[in-house]
């Protein structure tokens, strides 16, 4: 089962390695991890996507809470939430037909072409992980030169907030 855990953590050197180290030391799965400072520069917000049984995820949450640098955390998959991931993807588009088809697919997926060269389109696309996967699938006829994915970020819907 896939779970998304959102963490507020002290923005200290080494805080990220404490979290990453915990996952490797205890053999927990980690699908993606994103982290950046929040509006309060002393805090970072981290989103971890992990898989495991309910029991394992309960242990992961307890172990994360035990880290001294972790201020608060929330399991987003416990309730309604929004999940977004950004992808930058470079696709070969040298012929007219290719350029038109890639442009059309990008439009369907509401992606933006953010860089163009005579033979290449670079597309920016945001959405759930599934949507990004589908976009990659839809480009099967084309040559993908490079993909960069940010990993998922998430936030709870409605009134529920993760803050200090």
């Amino acid at each position: 089962m896939r779970h998304i855990i959102s963490i507020l953590i002290e923005n200290e050197a080494g805080a990220l390695s404490r979290v990453a180290g915990l996952f490797s030391a205890r053999g927990y799965n980690i699908e993606s991890l994103t982290v950046a400072p929040t509006e309060d520069p002393s805090l970072s917000r981290m989103t971890i996507v992990t898989t495991g049984t309910e029991r394992i995820v309960e242990q992961i949450i307890k172990q994360l809470n035990k880290l001294i640098d972790v201020v608060k955390l929330l399991e987003l998959t416990d309730g309604p939430h929004i999940e977004r991931e950004m992808m930058l993807i470079k696709v070969k588009a040298s012929t007219m037909a290719q350029r038109e088809d890639v442009k059309r697919l990008a439009d369907i997926f509401r992606g933006n072409i953010i860089d163009v060269s005579p033979t290449i389109f670079t597309i920016e696309l945001t959405g759930s992980g599934d949507k990004l996967d589908s976009f990659i699938d839809s480009l099967a006829e084309h040559k993908i030169l490079e993909t960069v994915r940010s990993g998922a970020s998430g936030i709870a819907r409605g009134d529920k907030c993760l803050h200090v």
Partner: peptide
């Protein structure tokens, strides 16, 4: 005193 000790190996 440590929540992570609870239900770690034995539920």
């Amino acid at each position: 005193i440590d929540p992570s000790s609870i239900s770690k190996t034995i539920v």
